[in-house]
Design a protein around this nucleic acid. Structure first.
Lengths: 338, 338
DNA sequence: GCTTTACGCTGTACCGGTTAAGTACGGGCG
DNA sequence: CGCCCGTACTTAACCGGTACAGCGTAAAGC
């Protein structure tokens, strides 16, 4: 490997016949440089193909211009993770790119990798850390924030955090409630739900939304709990049907579970939506393609990523107007299943 | 933001009553340090919570311990991208993590971002660059390699590259050929294909595999071209059926297109696999769940990621045994559709 | 005409590590 | 006993930038 010598400031300075400091000012776009000199420097930069060395720059500025995004390396990978995280990454990446910051991706989950993340952030390798974790009880975000490192989370933290961390979340409760109201407005009266895991904010809040809407209507609730996977949705739907063969609608707390539920309903000879209406949550691409296409609550995942990134950029710039919490709206997407 | 002062080598040295150099040697695990001193230093490190500053280290070692992964930011996002890249990322990430290297993610595609990537790599911010691009005609990998920067590509480059770049690919041709032979062995004789875009290696090679197997059997080929999307698969299947209503099998060059084809076949009243056998390529999760479950050629995407990363690690270590090309095996996964 | 002020550039001290060269010291050997 | 040598540490010179103090020059002020 020939790693061609990269030209340094010094080299550019010599060639342009000025001092290192002047070249630095030109490169960093200072205004107080005479036009003639600026042009000469720029020409030298051009000719030598000079690119500033980031390590040297970081050393003195104490900034790296890069931001870490931590993904939980869920030991048992859930299929929906493969739909969720890419969208988050895309959103984050768009926003960071616009700000000319770099994105460093890290997996965390094991306590070993926890340490890794902490040490990494402490080593000053990044200017801030974003958590795409959906498990809100993680102590790491708070720990880093306590150390003065800018942190943003996706999803409201579950523990009321002694050290509060800015977060962005979506309006689970409002979205679910309006979905359930949609079912009620269509005349459904035996509305069940397949809830998500109750140790995640997303699972909890979506169940709350369901309860809210049912309370309003004075109807009895009917809950089965799944773990967001398709298989668990299938099982949960079977249980619901066994408990109440007459149910006429079900709100399912994730699209993957909803697809499992559709399968169970088909197996049980129920027609969707004629016999049973189904509404999911997520609005993944596949939900447009299922049979029938799934009515679902869309959460703006790419926007979550963008928003996280924007908050992060605000934090690293030490702006004071960074909101401690942003809750993005959800939207009911009506298709054939309800 | 209180950015608590991070302790430096100097601080640790003072506390341990030794010189900076000695602390450095302890931290980097040099053997020529007396046990007593080593322990004293380690204790001081512990007490102060010392973490070496990466920028300072990089400045002198000329290594950053991080590797970039470039994803093409396909302007018109294809759904399958959302299945492919996460798997690549996962593979890469596993391997890099094991080697204690960081992963920097960058999107590229626009020529502006091209520049960005080039400057970024040149700035010495990463030790090497991996391209997860599937469009093999990109000049950037070659350009970086020429500058002496370690580069690895996923997918055989299309242009025979004046400056060769190590790559990892899968055995498209062999996998497709065995899929088609599977169809022939089941007695199918009018075997069509829905090919991928002919400006991508994956599209070209998979078509070649189909042709190879059909040539062997002395059968006529029947080709429609899609662009790897579900919709294009649906359209292509319609064309194939219109051209030859008697066809009894089709190899489809991607799972997404295969799902479109299944739809078109259903619309046309054909039963799968009774009337028409269908085989896809990719083995995405959804293919297990389709109706009928899709027989498909699996490509080991996570392994591709791992392999890329391993090659990259070899390159940055300047090992001489880094293979210029690795071709991973594909595997026919037989389900109900063929 | 001489001082004051502003401007624009240079010199240089850092940033926090690594590492080659230098030094102190104890032990083996002639 | 003096010499040499290896071991284990310290000293100091970088790495490649940034930023601040300082200085020369020219325009403005009186």
């Amino acid at each position: 490997m020939v790693t061609r010598e990269r030209p340094t400031l010094e080299a550019v300075a010599r060639r342009a016949g000025v001092s290192r400091a002047t070249v630095s000012r030109v490169v960093n776009g200072s205004t107080t440089v005479a036009v003639a000199i600026r042009d000469a420097v720029n020409q030298a930069v051009e000719e030598l193909g000079y690119v500033p060395n980031q390590a040297a720059r970081s050393l003195v500025t104490q900034r790296t211009e890069s931001i870490a995004l931590i993904l939980p390396e869920t030991a048992s990978r859930v299929f929906s993770d493969d739909m969720f995280f890419p969208a988050i990454i895309r959103g984050v990446s768009m926003e960071l790119e616009a700000a000319d910051k770099q994105l460093v991706l890290m997996m965390a989950g094991s306590s070993a990798s926890h340490d890794r993340v902490e040490r990494y952030a402490m080593a000053g390798h990044v200017d801030g850390v974003m958590f795409a974790s959906m498990h809100g009880a993680d102590p790491l975000p708070g720990a880093l924030a306590r150390l003065g490192i800018p942190v943003v989370c996706s999803g409201r933290p579950m523990t009321p955090a002694e050290f509060p961390v800015p977060y962005v979340d979506v309006d689970h409760i409002g979205g679910v409630a309006s979905a359930v109201r949609h079912l009620l407005a269509a005349g459904r009266r035996r509305v069940a739900t397949i809830a998500g895991p109750q140790d995640m904010v997303a699972g909890i809040d979506r169940l709350t939304g369901y309860r809210t809407a049912l309370d309003e209507a004075g109807l009895a609730e009917h809950v089965a709990v799944g773990d967001f996977t398709r298989e668990s949705g299938l099982q949960a739907m079977r249980r619901l049907l066994a408990d109440d063969p007459e149910l006429d609608a079900v709100f399912v707390a994730s699209d993957m579970m909803a697809h499992g539920a559709l399968q169970a309903l088909k197996d049980a000879g129920r027609r969707v939506p004629e016999d049973v209406s189904v509404i999911g949550f997520d609005d993944f691409e596949i939900s447009r393609l299922s049979d029938p296409p799934l009515t679902t609550v869309r959460q703006p995942i790419v926007d979550m990523g963008r928003t996280m990134a924007r908050q992060m950029l605000g934090l690293v710039d030490e702006r004071t107007d960074v909101p401690p919490a942003v809750v993005l709206p959800t939207e009911l997407v009506v298709r054939a299943s309800a």
